[in-house]
């Protein structure tokens, strides 16, 4: 068991099941994902079955179970982005990185994901790199952004 997970759990002493989501978020922030050992550790800590923790964690899109690359690239496939050529942007990114939706490059540098809507339709097509939004993206522009990382 990694010490960092134990440290995070120690910040939630005598916690009940209502602290499950904050704990999941804290561990993902620290580890970049939710390792399976963390699921079991949380279950022990909260005295709930491991399946309950797993069920909640898989319910929300924000949680991931594989380590993520250093850079996370998220592209929108929502309606607004789609009609403005978002599909081509997504293809370009996939081709450049050599990964499919949800995958991480073998060198652990990039993780690529798509989402249904980022809520920034006025900027369509939109991608997010790390915490930064980029709007009115073309396939070319997308590749340029990635090259700069």
């Amino acid at each position: 068991m990694s010490d960092s997970i134990n440290e995070i759990l120690a910040q939630f002493p005598n916690a009940a099941a209502d602290k499950l989501i904050p704990i999941l978020q804290a561990i993902q922030n620290s580890e970049g994902y939710l390792p399976m050992e963390a699921i079991h550790a949380i279950a022990d800590h909260l005295r709930v079955p491991s399946g309950k923790v797993y069920g909640v964690a898989t319910f929300y899109n924000q949680f991931r179970f594989e380590p993520a690359g250093k850079n996370r690239i998220t592209a929108c496939r929502g309606t607004a982005c789609h009609v403005r050529g978002g599909k081509n942007v997504i293809s370009a990114i996939k081709q450049y990185l050599g990964v499919e939706d949800g995958e991480t490059t073998p060198d652990m540098k990039y993780t690529f994901e798509t989402v249904a809507c980022l809520g920034a339709c006025a900027l369509a097509p939109v991608i997010v790199v790390g915490q930064k939004y980029a709007g009115k993206v073309t396939p070319k522009k997308a590749v340029t952004i990635l090259e700069k990382l």
């Binding site: 079955p49 399946g51 898989t58």
Partner: peptide
């Protein structure tokens, strides 16, 4: 016995044992 649980959601919802 607390073994079976729903995982995922929507049309991906699947019944799994413990942590799948």
């Amino acid at each position: 016995n607390d073994v079976l649980t729903f995982s995922q959601r929507g049309y991906r919802t699947k019944i799994v044992c413990d942590t799948a």
